[in-house]
């Protein structure tokens, strides 16, 4: 599945470029000059605990503002943009611990996601013109399709709080996809998921890759990263240790020392 074996993506296929990103918390340096570029396909982001992966995600998606550095997504500078603006520009994230809106139904969770709904504006909700109805109907149709794709369609009227852990992961992913993203950032989408569901999620991700979506995902399971990613970025102590194809990374001494050495592969 990984035909792309070049070490760095050529400029035209770079979707996300990060330069010299720094983030501190008090005296602690979480990101210490991260430089990387991400192309299309599935890119894995690995690193030992405390390497700064989640901080990096939070900086990318506008939840944190980096002190130094720049983030360019599809040619546009999104450094310091608000989370909503980042999402609108086509880069959407999931959360490490699924954050379903537990008092709303599964359907409502899904309906929330699609962008630019006429009824989402106060004027639209008050006036209820044709666009209101058309948008809501088409949004519902898309939500139903997405629910079917993730086999959540029998749960649409359940409050999302009643879902199992795995179903929450699926809902989170489905919700992210409904925002029409170019790139989806997945924060440990497989953590705490049983093997059957893991297989299902991975199948879906590959299906979606074939449809043109790109993924950047953080994962602990090395085997998973090696088997399913086109390219791998290794983060260590707030810096990029190396990037490359799974094979290259797997044989990199520094990586083995920093990370793989600690784990039984």
């Amino acid at each position: 599945m990984s035909e792309d074996s070049s070490v760095a993506p050529s400029p035209e296929e770079t979707i996300l470029a990060v330069e010299d990103l720094e983030k501190h918390f008090g005296g602690i340096v979480a990101l210490d000059g991260v430089d990387l570029s991400v192309g299309s396909g599935i890119t894995g982001l690995i690193g030992p605990n405390g390497a700064g992966k989640t901080t990096f995600f939070n900086c990318l998606t506008g939840f944190y503002t980096p002190e130094v550095g720049s983030i360019t997504f599809q040619g546009a500078d999104i450094t310091g943009s608000r989370p909503a603006a980042v999402a609108k520009s086509g880069m959407v994230r999931t959360f490490q611990i699924p954050r379903e809106l537990s008092e709303m139904t599964v359907l409502e969770n899904l309906l929330l996601a699609p962008p630019d709904q006429s009824g989402e504006r106060l004027s639209g909700a008050w006036l209820r013109g044709d666009a209101f109805v058309d948008d809501e109907l088409s949004v519902r149709e898309r939500a139903l399709e997405m629910a079917e794709f993730f086999e959540l369609d029998h749960l649409l009227d359940e409050p999302a709080g009643n879902l199992s852990g795995g179903q929450r992961k699926l809902l989170e992913l489905a919700r992210a996809l409904l925002t029409d993203p170019e790139m989806v950032l997945l924060d440990e989408p497989l953590a705490g998921v049983n093997p059957t569901l893991e297989e299902k999620i991975l199948d879906r991700i590959h299906d979606l890759e074939a449809q043109g979506y790109s993924f950047l995902f953080v994962e602990h399971d090395i085997e998973m990263i090696m088997n399913h990613c086109d390219r791998v970025i290794v983060l260590h102590r707030g810096e990029v240790l190396t990037t490359g194809t799974p094979e290259e990374v797997q044989t990199d001494d520094r990586v083995i020392e920093a990370y793989l050495g600690e784990v039984d592969v």
Binding site: F63, P83, A84, R99, E103, L111, L122, G124
Partner: peptide, 30 residues
């Protein structure tokens, strides 16, 4: 007037904010 506002996609966003503001933000809602 309030019922009309709440029973709409707009109201959906409001309730999402009440539950967990990060989620609608991450999905592109201001």
């Amino acid at each position: 007037w309030v019922e009309r506002t709440i029973n709409s996609p707009y109201g959906r966003v409001l309730r999402a904010i009440r539950e967990d503001e990060d989620v609608p933000q991450a999905l592109g809602k201001e």
